[in-house]
């Protein structure tokens, strides 16, 4: 079982379908601090879970594996207690939109900092939960403002994002509270990029894995280009889709692109070879 479910799931349920994990209290006692005066930020650490990238790059270049592992171990120990994410399927994402409230569309910080996406083209994230009522305290996090939407509007928007090819994820802000639903891709999403390029497990794989039914696959290539995790290509010599199941994050983008239902999602935990591959 995924360690987050073990700790925060409701009796064997997936942790992100447990309503308790959306019930963060609205108020907490804050210490007086210098926050209002404008605290320093490191532009290098902008984007989801990017604080360690500068160090990781150095460790990589120096070829010091021990150093690299230490950076990851320490950073993840902290991240898993505070801020991390996991891939979910479209179905799960839609279920979450019925559990969490309120729902507010907001701009994607990753694409802003990595591509300078203008705000009006960049409303691909969703802030959720009571914390959104006080978004104006920290407008930089919600640069470009927010737009509160109904669950029905949110679902329509989620379907559009899935269709366009974005991976859907849940994001924790103060474990186990889920405060964000992101729609990510490589390389624009910092979390996806750091997982793929540096094997930094800030973003966990989802609970499913895609498998190709080689009888049903016609080699039409509709699924090609859907995978954001470098896990899908055409097996040219047999003209069939190939999913690298070890590399698959279980988002299901390839599944919904297939006109012959030749790709199906299976439970990761029912596949002994992949069950611990988060």
């Amino acid at each position: 079982m995924c360690w987050v479910c073990e700790k925060y799931g409701n009796k064997g349920e997936k942790w992100y379908l447990n309503p308790e994990n959306y019930a963060r209290r609205l108020y907490k006692v804050r210490k007086e601090g210098k926050e209002a005066a404008g605290s320093d930020a490191d532009p290098q650490s902008a984007g989801m879970g990017a604080g360690v990238v500068a160090e990781l790059v150095k460790a990589r270049i120096s070829g010091n594996l021990e150093w690299e592992e230490e950076i990851k171990r320490e950073a993840l120990e902290h991240a898993y207690q505070t801020h991390f994410g996991q891939v979910v399927t479209l179905d799960e994402y839609l279920q979450i939109l019925d559990i969490a409230y309120p729902l507010a569309k907001m701009t994607c910080g990753c694409r802003r900092v990595q591509r300078g996406m203008p705000d009006d083209e960049n409303f691909t994230c969703m802030g959720i939960g009571p914390g959104m009522y006080k978004w104006e305290r920290w407008p930089e996090t919600y640069r470009g403002g927010v737009e509160f939407v109904t669950p029905e509007e949110a679902k329509e928007w989620a379907l559009m994002n899935h269709k366009e090819g974005r991976v859907q994820t849940v994001d924790v802000f103060g474990t186990p509270y889920i405060g964000g639903l992101c729609q990510c891709e490589y390389p624009g999403c910092v979390a996806v990029r750091n997982r793929i390029d540096y094997d930094f497990k800030f973003l966990l794989k989802g609970h499913t894995v895609a498998k190709v039914d080689r009888e049903k696959c016609t080699g039409c290539k509709s699924c090609l280009g859907r995978c954001q995790f470098k896990a899908l290509n055409l097996e040219v010599y047999t003209s069939k889709a190939y999913v690298d199941m070890d590399q698959c994050f279980g988002c299901g983008l390839c599944v919904t692109a297939c006109p012959t239902n030749a790709i199906e999602l299976f439970d990761r935990e029912n596949m002994p070879g992949l069950a611990e591959n988060w």
Partner: peptide, 25 residues
């Protein structure tokens, strides 16, 4: 590249002049 804020303010967005580019990757 990454283009991030050097300051975070309560109650207002960071001014564009407080943003900086860096060659992160």
């Amino acid at each position: 590249f990454v283009c991030g804020p050097t300051k975070i303010w309560k109650g207002r967005e960071t001014d564009p002049s407080e943003y900086r580019i860096a060659g992160r990757y």
